[in-house]
């Protein structure tokens, strides 16, 4: 008697055990191609995340530096009929934005050298006596980070307002600033008004 046999095309394996595949001759790696692609994709994703975090960090530092300019603008600006309380608050604000000492170079006002925070606020207080209204705005702010904890900013500072004598103020200057990060705060350490035209 002949027992019918169903042909499945699979090799005969009466025990049903799964045999381990032995690497064939010429096969270089045990890692399959799909896994290699997975590794590459994960690596690329990690690199992209790293780059993203780096730029996020840079951007946030840039925002912090820009904020200092915004605060300086608020501190220097003066409205008509400013009271003593506001003046005091603004001077304190100005002082908090500067390093213990700051290198100043303002050729038009014959200012050159290192000034302490107190000297700067004193200078700002005296300057306010000559103006009834003053607005300081910053434009074209270009910030670079030459090394860790240092930010260099080149900005256009625009001053508008009125003197106590009634004369209009309308000036624009290119300013080169160096800010240093001290105790998580960006503080002005150098301010130089660029002398474009030297008589």
């Amino acid at each position: 008697m002949v027992t019918p046999v169903r042909t499945t095309g699979k090799p005969f394996n009466p025990t049903g055990r799964v045999a381990k595949k032995s690497p064939s001759v010429g096969q270089r790696s045990m890692i399959p191609d799909w896994l290699k692609i997975k590794y590459v994709l994960v690596s690329m994703a990690l690199i992209a995340i790293g780059i993203g975090i780096f730029f996020m960090f840079l951007e946030s530092e840039e925002k912090k530096v820009k904020k200092q300019f915004h605060l300086l603008s608020e501190g220097v600006s003066k409205e008509t009929g400013e009271n003593i309380f506001t003046l005091d608050q603004k001077l304190k604000k100005i002082g908090s934005l500067f390093n213990d000492t700051c290198d100043m170079a303002i050729p038009a006002h014959s200012i050159s050298g290192q000034m302490t925070r107190e000297e700067i606020t004193g200078y700002a207080a005296r300057g306010r006596l000559y103006v009834s209204e003053l607005h300081l705005t910053f434009h074209d702010v270009m910030i670079t980070f030459p090394q860790e904890g240092e930010a260099r900013a080149r900005v256009t500072a625009r001053l508008t307002g009125k003197t106590t004598a009634g004369e209009g103020i309308n000036e624009a200057h290119e300013i080169d600033c160096l800010l240093k990060k001290i105790e998580k705060k960006w503080l002005f350490s150098s301010i130089e008004v660029v002398e474009v035209l030297k008589k």
């Binding site: 074209d140 624009a172 200057h173 290119e174 474009v196 035209l197």
Partner: peptide, 12 residues
Amino acid sequence: VIRFTGERITLL
């Protein structure tokens, strides 16, 4: 035309 400050303020 001379660049005075920033990108917009120039002098003739």
